[in-house]
Structures are given as structure tokens and as C-alpha cells.
């Protein structure tokens, strides 16, 4: 198996291309910093639903439920509930980790 990534250049022989992209990216950053966008003040943040004024807090996405659907679907919050803050639990993890490392070492 030949994994000759290091001997040649990582992006192929594209030093000049990479330099060009680097310069373009630097100009892009400079543009982001220097441009004067319009500020969103209170008036522009008002929401309208069917012609009526709506309460923004009711319709905006709650920050902490950003990925709630995915987390709930894959039951990922079990991992968070396991971090219960109980010291005995954490010490049990250390013990189980030790036993698991030992077992994997013995069987493979």
C-alpha cells in the first residue's frame, strides 16, 4: 500500500493556485471587515403575519432547540443524562473503563 501523501504537495502541484486562493481569501476577509452593512434596529426586526404584527419571541427559533429533532430522533440526550453530576457515577466509569480496556486487551 502506498500512501505517498507527504512526498508530493498536498494539493497536487498547486503552489501558485494555493497562493492565488490565499490572496483571494485575504481580500474577502478584508471586504467583510471594511464593508458597512445596514444595522438591524428595532423597527426592521418587527414581524408581520397575515398583515398583523406578531410577537418575535413566539415565531423565532429557540437557540437551544436548534438540533432538537435530530437529537431526539437518535436519542442522543441519553448521553447528556448520563452526565448526571454524581461523583459515584463518574468513578464507576473510571472502573468500567479500566475493565473494558483490560478485556479488549485480553481478547484481541
Amino acid at each position: 500500500m502506498s500512501l505517498n501523501i507527504v512526498s508530493s504537495s498536498f494539493f497536487g502541484n498547486g503552489f501558485y493556485t494555493a497562493s492565488l486562493l490565499f490572496i483571494i481569501f485575504s481580500i474577502f476577509i478584508y471586504w467583510i471587515i471594511e464593508r458597512e452593512p445596514s444595522l438591524r434596529d428595532k423597527a426592521s426586526r418587527e414581524m408581520y403575519v397575515c398583515g398583523n404584527k406578531a410577537d418575535p419571541d413566539q415565531y423565532r427559533v429557540n437557540e437551544h432547540s436548534f438540533y432538537k429533532t435530530i437529537i431526539n430522533y437518535f436519542k442522543l440526550d441519553i448521553i447528556k443524562q448520563a452526565h448526571s453530576g454524581k461523583l459515584s457515577m463518574y468513578l464507576l466509569w473510571v472502573l468500567f473503563g479500566l475493565i473494558i480496556i483490560g478485556f479488549i486487551l485480553m481478547w484481541f
Binding site: 452526565h83 466509569w93 468500567f96 473503563g97 479500566l98
Partner: peptide
């Protein structure tokens, strides 16, 4: 395995990261 337990704790590797 015993030595690695200590090192994993120091490096905060799961499940010694709590």
C-alpha cells in the same frame, strides 16, 4: 491497562473525562 487508565484520566479521554 492500569497505566493507560491513569494517562487517559490526565488527558480527559472518554470515559475518564467527567
Amino acid at each position: 491497562a492500569l497505566i493507560l487508565t491513569g494517562l487517559f484520566m490526565k488527558g480527559a479521554i472518554v470515559p475518564f473525562h467527567a
